[in-house]
Simulated assay, not measured.
Amino acid sequence: MKPQDVLAGKSSLWIFGYGSLVWKPDFKYKRSKVGYIGGYKRRFWHGDNFHRGNDERPGRVVTLIEDDDASTWGVAFEVSGAQAEESLKYLNVRETMCGGYLTKMVDFFPEGEEGAPVQALVYIATKDNPLFLGYATPEVIGFQIAMSQGKSGHNLEYLRRLAEFMRQRCPRVRDDHLFHIEAAALRVVAVLLAAQ
């Protein structure tokens, strides 16, 4: 599905963010809601050689992996009119620059709201992307994140801001994958600082 196809006949669109979009959408939107989607788990399995790493030391960012028993918390942004077109143009560059991404419409469940979910567009990095790195232990991922930096900043900042979002906005949700990697990355940083 092409992202622009989802706008056909609609006055507004919801876009679900589960990585850097939760703290830095960088596009105009009408409103936002914290909530979750089902059937996916968030994993640091995607490499990044631009924003949070480089060719020598690619960073790690999150993507979604299908899992019927899982859910992923994040933020959905409602965009309408010209906002929708502008945000899709922007996200097509930001999210799909390297190719290997899918866009899907998923059910988004806003926190604290009963009733039917809303349909939201989500970007998912797939195994077809040359930067898809796949599974590694939290220690390996944490080390990679602690040692990587790109044009948008240090990979550790990405990790810490995502963990901070989950603690502040979704305090009842356990994200062991995220928090184990954060702990591993911070141990690496502590060793590096102690060696100076």
Score class of each variant (00 low, 15 high):
H177M: 06
V122F: 11
D107Y: 08
A116L: 09
A136F: 05
R52T: 03
H51R: 13
T103Y: 03
K41E: 14
G99I: 03
M105K: 05
G53R: 04
G81K: 07
E56K: 13
Q144A: 10
Y158C: 10
D175K: 14
A120S: 11
L178N: 12
L21S: 02
D128V: 02
R161S: 14
Q144L: 13
D5W: 00
N49C: 08
G47Q: 11
A84R: 03
R31M: 14
C170G: 07
V173Y: 05
K89A: 09
L192H: 04
G115V: 01
K28T: 11
A190P: 01
E78H: 10
G112S: 10
G47I: 08
F143R: 15
V189W: 02
G17I: 03
T126P: 12
D176Y: 06
V6F: 14
D48W: 01
C170Y: 03
I65L: 10
Q149M: 08
G100N: 04
A195W: 03
D67F: 04
Q196P: 05
K89V: 08
F179W: 13
V189S: 07
L133G: 07
A136Y: 10
G17L: 06
T126A: 13
Q4H: 07
E164M: 06
Y135Q: 12
Y101N: 05
V106S: 08
Y18N: 01
L133D: 02
S80F: 02
N49L: 02
D55Y: 06
G150R: 10
H154I: 01
A82Q: 15
I15P: 06
P171F: 08
G53Q: 05
Y36K: 07
P138T: 11
R174V: 02
W45G: 07
Y18E: 03
A194H: 12
R94M: 03
K151Y: 10
A190T: 12
Y123F: 15
F27N: 05
W14A: 07
P58F: 05
H180N: 15
R160A: 06
P117A: 01
E139L: 10
W45R: 04
Q119I: 02
M166C: 11
Q4G: 05
I181F: 13
G38I: 03
A120Q: 01
Q4C: 04
V189P: 09
S20K: 05
V140M: 04
P58A: 07
Y40C: 12
K24I: 01
A136E: 15
D55L: 10
L102A: 07
S12P: 06
T137D: 13
N54T: 09
Y90K: 09
E113M: 13
D69A: 14
K30G: 08
A195N: 09
S32G: 12
K41Q: 11
E113R: 06
G153R: 04
G134R: 10
A120V: 00
Y40R: 00
R60N: 12
N129P: 05
N54V: 06
A190K: 09
L121P: 00
R57E: 11
E111Q: 15
F165H: 02
V188T: 10
S87T: 14
F50S: 08
V122G: 12
F109K: 00
H180A: 15
I181N: 05
G142D: 14
V118P: 15
G112I: 08
Y18C: 02
E182N: 09
G9F: 00
Y123I: 01
A76Y: 00
G9Q: 00
T137E: 14
P25H: 02
F108T: 01
A76M: 03
E182V: 04
